[in-house]
């Protein structure tokens, strides 16, 4: 009886000691809106339409309006309408450009197939994840919004896979 009490007390003391140990460790909580989130490099967030940053086509849109992304998309959330590059106004190299380029982010499942299908590397999935909105219409991203670079509130971790990602 007495022996059981002492053993029991010792066990409770050990358990409480373990609890007390965590009192001194750093909290695991990520204070998200104030602190950036740690993301792995392969995380896929909001799409971005890229422009040529250097070379002879500098400043032009990479998208040539071929609709391969729309064809490959499993949820059919991409709508592309191609237009012809007229004299004087050159929006992309070659003959055609995307006159309308819309992605319904509420349909999208961020699989990255559009990125794989794109022949010019125009569409890439960046790491922006804070996308919540008040209306369905407001979450259909149009071309001018997709052309803006994504600035996620995040730091990208290096897990050694960054070399394998294309166009990032």
């Amino acid at each position: 009886m007495l022996r059981d009490s002492i053993v029991g007390f010792w066990h409770i003391l050990r358990a409480m000691g373990l609890t007390f140990k965590y009192f001194f460790t750093k909290p695991v909580t990520v204070q998200y809106p104030e602190e950036p989130v740690k993301l792995y490099p392969r995380f896929r967030g909001r799409h971005e339409l890229r422009r040529y940053e250097e070379g002879p086509y500098e400043g032009l849109e990479r998208c040539i309006g071929c609709s391969l992304c729309a064809a490959y998309c499993p949820t059919q959330c991409i709508y592309v309408q191609a237009g012809e590059n007229k004299d004087g106004i050159q929006r992309s190299p070659g003959e055609r450009y995307a006159e309308i380029y819309e992605i319904n982010l509420l349909r999208c499942m961020f699989c990255g197939y559009c990125e794989e299908a794109c022949p010019t590397g125009a569409i890439v999935l960046r790491r922006e994840f804070a996308l919540a909105g008040y209306s369905r219409q407001g979450l259909i991203y149009t071309q001018d919004r997709l052309l803006q670079p994504a600035e996620p509130n995040a730091v990208i971790l290096d897990d050694g896979t960054a070399a394998g990602t294309r166009g990032k």
Binding site: Y32, P33, F129, A130, L131, A132, Y134, R136
Partner: peptide, 26 residues
């Protein structure tokens, strides 16, 4: 939203927990 009025839409498949937290801030 075909059934009930929706206030905040959170895109993602599934959204990250942070994306949901952003939805709650919205």
């Amino acid at each position: 939203d075909k059934l009930i009025p929706v206030d905040v839409y959170v895109p993602g498949c599934p959204p990250r927990p942070e994306a949901l937290l952003y939805g709650i801030i919205e």
